[in-house]
């Protein structure tokens, strides 16, 4: 096993130097840096912001219903019940971002597991798993998600699990392709010859080479999860009031579009900002981690 460890050490040092140049490449990608900064601000604002505000997100201020932005104590105005929109944006941000990150983590774990097994073993197991992935991808995500969401009790946990359940397939595809290409490389064959177990080869030798693609897919998956949450909550099957999410804040906004347009504008801007940021970071990571692509 000492030799196998030696191999891994070698891989580790190389990964270390790549990591350094990848970071400098990422830093040169201005939009990705701006995206990362925006994400940091959104996360901090959502998790710390509510402690700095004098208003609770569920506090109903009947005297100040439909207060427009910048018109008084409520900086971004109030909604149809007189709740402070900024407070709701922050609390909604907590939920939307938490769902985005958690759903991504579950989807990455599931997708990596399925992709790794399918890519490594190939044959009947591999093609069965991948045909299953293809089959789920035939269903438009939103249709599948809504049909499933209507079957369960809506809530934070069920939303997260359902979004993960409908978004792990692209990760499985990416990981499967990578592992399939790598499993017959010399170092994998050598590790096998030295008696390393299949799991060890997959986990220690093959997976580290797929990390770059997985990280990019993870970033883009957070963006997708936030979008999906907003769609489903907007349609009324996601996070339920009085809890706020960026999606369900838009739920009633259409009715008041002509009298109180800010109800629609604010949460939508938050979603767009968050999703754009994650997409830019994903783009930057792709450029930084894949040296074959040139930097724009």
């Amino acid at each position: 096993m000492t030799d196998a460890t030696g191999l891994i050490d070698l891989a580790d040092t190389r990964a270390g130097s790549e990591h350094k140049s990848a970071w400098s490449r990422f830093r040169r990608h201005k939009l990705a840096m701006a995206g990362a900064a925006t994400i940091a601000i959104l996360v901090l604002g959502s998790f710390l912001g509510p402690y700095l505000l004098p208003f609770d997100d569920t506090h109903i201020d009947v005297m100040h219903r439909f207060a427009p932005p910048l018109s008084g104590a409520h900086v971004l105005g109030t909604d149809e019940l007189g709740r402070d929109i900024l407070a709701r944006l922050m609390m909604g941000g907590r939920i939307s971002l938490a769902i985005g990150f958690t759903a991504m983590a579950i989807a990455i774990a599931a997708g990596t597991g399925v992709g790794m097994i399918a890519g490594y073993y190939g044959g009947i197991i591999g093609s069965l798993l991948m045909r299953f992935v293809d089959a789920i991808l035939c269903f438009p995500t939103i249709f599948l998600l809504l049909a499933l969401a209507a079957l369960v009790k809506p809530g934070l946990l069920s939303m997260t699990l359902l979004i993960a359940a409908t978004s792990w397939m692209n990760v499985a595809r990416i990981v499967e392709a990578q592992i399939r290409a790598l499993r017959d490389q010399d170092y994998a064959v050598a590790a096998r010859a030295m008696g390393a177990s299949s799991f060890r080869i997959m986990w220690r030798n093959l997976l580290p080479n797929a990390v770059a693609s997985i990280v990019v897919a993870a970033t883009l998956n957070v963006a997708k999860a936030i979008l999906l949450e907003s769609y489903v909550s907007f349609l009324g099957y996601g996070i339920q009031p009085p809890n706020a999410s960026w999606g369900n804040m838009l739920n009633n906004a259409q009715i008041y579009l002509s009298s109180a347009p800010w109800l629609a504008i604010m949460p939508g801007l938050a979603i767009t900002l968050a999703v754009t940021s994650f997409n830019f970071v994903g783009d930057g990571l792709r450029d930084a981690l894949d040296p074959r692509m040139e930097i724009s």
Partner: peptide, 24 residues
């Protein structure tokens, strides 16, 4: 950059904004 932003805008929200601008 525009394409990336367009990909990130929730379709239903863009629809609401379009209704607000062009109808309301």
């Amino acid at each position: 950059v525009g394409a990336m932003v367009a990909l990130s805008i929730p379709t239903f929200w863009f629809g609401l904004i379009a209704i607000y601008l062009f109808s309301v």
